[in-house]
């Protein structure tokens, strides 16, 4: 464990908690893409099945349980508890265009053709594009609540910190995972446009307006 990975995990945890609290406190999921949240729940489910097969550390297990629990709680709040506030008209990204190619790629490009490894690879590829429905929805509505932009900022920051973690681990431990690195780069690049707006416009405005 190094400071970049720890900060990255805490940033990821912060994003997940911020979103869950936002929906719970405001009793509304307006502006939130339920599709992205379903994809994240799928990412955690397919990646953390090893909870049942191997124990890494208390930290590892605890974080995985928290991530999975929060992901499903968020999906529940969006599609069940506060369904009336779900903005389905703007959450129209065709997620099958993400899941199917990612599923196929996981079968073609992986480190090992075993079920757990394929599922892990699927989760890595899916995570890199899972935010697209959310970014697409914001571009359609043309704005995002401030709290949502903080959620996206920490979510994007976490994988950027993981990239530094992988540089650190390559240099000090000789650790190298091409699949995780390439997907992580793609994932972080998708946030660049948002990062620019967050930094340049975040301060001044109450709402982040993305030019549609």
């Amino acid at each position: 464990m190094n400071i970049f990975r720890l900060t990255g995990d805490l940033s990821h945890l912060a994003a997940i908690i911020i979103l869950l609290l936002k929906i719970w406190k405001t009793r509304s999921c307006a502006g939130i893409s339920g599709k992205s949240q379903i994809l994240f729940a799928l990412v955690f489910t397919s990646r953390y099945l090893d909870l049942l097969t191997s124990f890494i550390s208390l930290y590892n297990t605890t974080m995985k349980v928290i991530y999975i629990g929060c992901a499903y709680a968020t999906v529940y709040l969006i599609y069940a508890k506060f369904k009336a506030t779900y903005d389905g008209n703007h959450d129209t990204f065709r997620v099958e265009f993400l899941v199917v190619p990612v599923g196929g790629l996981a079968f073609l490009v992986n480190h090992d053709f075993s079920p757990l490894e394929i599922l892990w690879t699927f989760s890595i590829y899916l995570e890199s594009v899972a935010i697209l429905p959310q970014l697409f929805m914001i571009s359609k509505t043309g704005e995002a609540e401030t709290i949502t932009t903080h959620y996206l900022f920490f979510l994007g920051l976490y994988r950027a910190l993981y990239l530094i973690n992988w540089i650190w681990r390559f240099y000090f431990e000789g650790f190298f995972d091409m699949i995780a690195i390439v997907a992580g780069v793609v994932q972080t690049i998708l946030y660049c446009d948002f990062f620019y707006l967050y930094v340049t416009k975040g301060e001044g405005r109450s709402q982040l307006s993305i030019p549609t």
Partner: peptide, 10 residues
């Protein structure tokens, strides 16, 4: 091109 390792990352 991948170091065999336990998946210890989240």
């Amino acid at each position: 091109h991948r170091t065999p390792q336990v998946k210890d990352e989240l």
